[in-house]
């Protein structure tokens, strides 16, 4: 900023607006989420309140409570919380996401904190070296994220299952299809998860962005235009899905600990 030859101006920035507000908000909200998610992932309990399974624990492949494992328990020997087995996939997906990268480079690494505000670091090599060069694996996490999305969609279907007998308020309430506030929250969550996953830049590349001749691939061109439209709001889906995942987990936690009762519609 003050290199020889440039206009000599001491100030790190001459911006007078509240440029620090956005990185600060990001910092606070992300940190809160990370703390919450870490606590919940390590707890290893209160993640299942039939028929709802917390998204942090889905698929539940470890030594999970009865009814939570719909895909078997291949990691039944795993001594720690079952969330930790699958955590790497959503975590890796979001950590390497182009939108989240922008957000945390700005809010946590201050590189740069905001546009036209000098960063505090004296050297900078971007994403050219280890470990940041690994951001380039993002598309592999996207492949995994599609599978996770399918599993979460399946969970939503399961959330329509009848409730167990002890939740029944009146006679016959446990039989047949059920829907409660939990089901609704899970539907909202899975919608945001899909919007987030399908608006991904790697998805945009894979479906058609990598082509040089749109004209020779009309179907892929059409798909690309759809993904491109979603992609313009990718950041919004990133936030919404972050909140919805935490909310569904919190709801399941409150049910499982008996703090609240599920609101049942039918």
């Amino acid at each position: 900023m003050t290199s020889p030859g440039r206009a000599h101006i001491e100030a790190r920035t001459l911006r007078e607006d509240r440029w620090w507000l956005q990185p600060l908000t990001t910092f606070v909200v992300f940190s809160a989420f990370v703390v919450y998610a870490t606590v919940r992932a390590f707890m290893g309990r209160d993640y299942y309140a039939s028929p709802y399974l917390s998204p942090f624990y889905s698929p539940c492949l470890g030594d999970c409570v009865e009814g939570a494992s719909d895909f078997g328990q291949p990691f039944g020997w795993w001594p720690l919380s079952a969330a930790l087995i699958i955590l790497i996939f959503p975590l890796g997906f979001r950590m390497t996401c182009y939108y989240y990268r922008k957000s945390y480079y700005r809010a946590f690494w201050l590189s740069p904190p905001a546009c036209g505000v000098a960063e505090p670091h004296s050297a900078y090599s971007g994403e050219t070296r280890f470990p940041l060069v690994l951001q380039n694996v993002h598309r592999y996490f996207w492949y995994a994220a599609v599978l996770v999305g399918l599993v979460l969609t399946y969970d939503v279907l399961l959330a329509f299952r009848p409730m167990p007998a002890e939740y029944a308020v009146g006679d016959g309430e446990t039989s047949g299809v059920h829907m409660g506030l939990g089901t609704l929250l899970m539907i909202a969550n899975v919608v945001f998860i899909w919007l987030y996953t399908l608006s991904c830049h790697s998805c945009r590349h894979v479906v058609g962005g990598r082509l040089r001749h749109f004209s020779k691939h009309p179907v892929r061109y059409r798909l690309w235009t759809w993904v491109s439209r979603l992609n313009t709001s990718h950041g919004r889906w990133a936030w919404y899905s972050l909140f919805s995942v935490a909310l569904v987990d919190l709801y399941v936690f409150l049910l499982a600990t008996g703090t609240i009762q599920d609101v049942r519609f039918f």
Partner: peptide
């Protein structure tokens, strides 16, 4: 290209509104 960390300031200032980063 690898030096860019996609923090989008170029897009923010472009007077032509080009979505440079995305």
């Amino acid at each position: 290209l690898g030096m860019c960390n996609i923090t989008k300031c170029c897009t923010e200032v472009c007077p032509e509104g080009i979505h440079i980063t995305d």
